[in-house]
Amino acid sequence: MFYYHKKYLLIMVALAALAAFYANSEPLVANNKNFETANRFLQQANNDEKKARQSLVDANSVRQAISKARVEARREKQSDVKVELLKKAERLANELEAHQKNGADYRVQGQSKMQLAADSFSVGLIELFEKWIVNRAPLTMDPETLDYISHNTAVRSVHPTMLNKMGTAEEQQSGNKNSIQKDNVMTLRIASLMGQSAPADLNISAFRLSNQQGYFAHIEVHNSTEQKNNVSQVPLNNIHQWRLIISDVKGAPVSGKNIKIVGHMPGHVHGLPTQPQVTKELAPGVFLVEGVKFQMQGWWVIQFEIYDDNNVSKSEQELAPLDILTFNLIL
């Protein structure tokens, strides 16, 4: 009896020590069930995506076999062989349809699993950085700053070679003749996404999984280091601050990394008007981003390239980022 007690006691002491260890090591990685769930969904999503791709590859080879059978059938003189070949083509066509349907189904399934993974990661990240994450909404433009500067239309920047693809003055004139004079309604507020083709289902979440699926991160706007000033609206033409909050996919804060910020507008050739920088790690995994400024409304892509801190000696050209976090903003 005593023997058993001693054994239990040992186990309990070991458990207590383990618990104490985890309690002291910041933060409580092991307790975050959401990351486990998220990883399970992520794995399923990846498997589905792999199956989707395989189905589409299979579909492709079946499509080639169909063409081959049809060509052979056309050339075949003997009618019974010809019929056989056409039957084969028909059978294959059914197979093709099945492959295509499979591929599409797996893709949809994978995407919904990916969404579930992202949701769980988000919940996990919010739990992990409870006192840091204040604002979960996607970023928007502060309308008050917008009205003041009236920067409502898009500067469209093109490569010089694009000019000859713009049609001629005559074409333009015949299409729009006197349109301004006829149309007396003021159309001052030109759609800010003019000339940009942001997909309708663009993911503009402030929570994103990295390109290589190594990290999960969140961005939010701060107008000063005081947390109370947090808003989800960025001001136009004003330098302001962001917080970038990163964990790895296992739920551990990502600390001591070099992070480079690159921004651009798809459909334009220009980037940000300033060079924002990570100036401080406020806490493990919580990075202060300073110098962010947007000079235009529209679709922006902001990328955070994560570099290993140990590689600082290498020249810029030699360095490849460990991973990249990509956020889409519709401002």
Partner: peptide
């Protein structure tokens, strides 16, 4: 003025 603010896109950069 309508052209300036609209189709001619001048106000994209010449604003405020």
């Amino acid at each position: 003025m309508r052209l300036f603010l609209g189709r001619a896109n001048c106000v994209s950069c010449h604003n405020g």
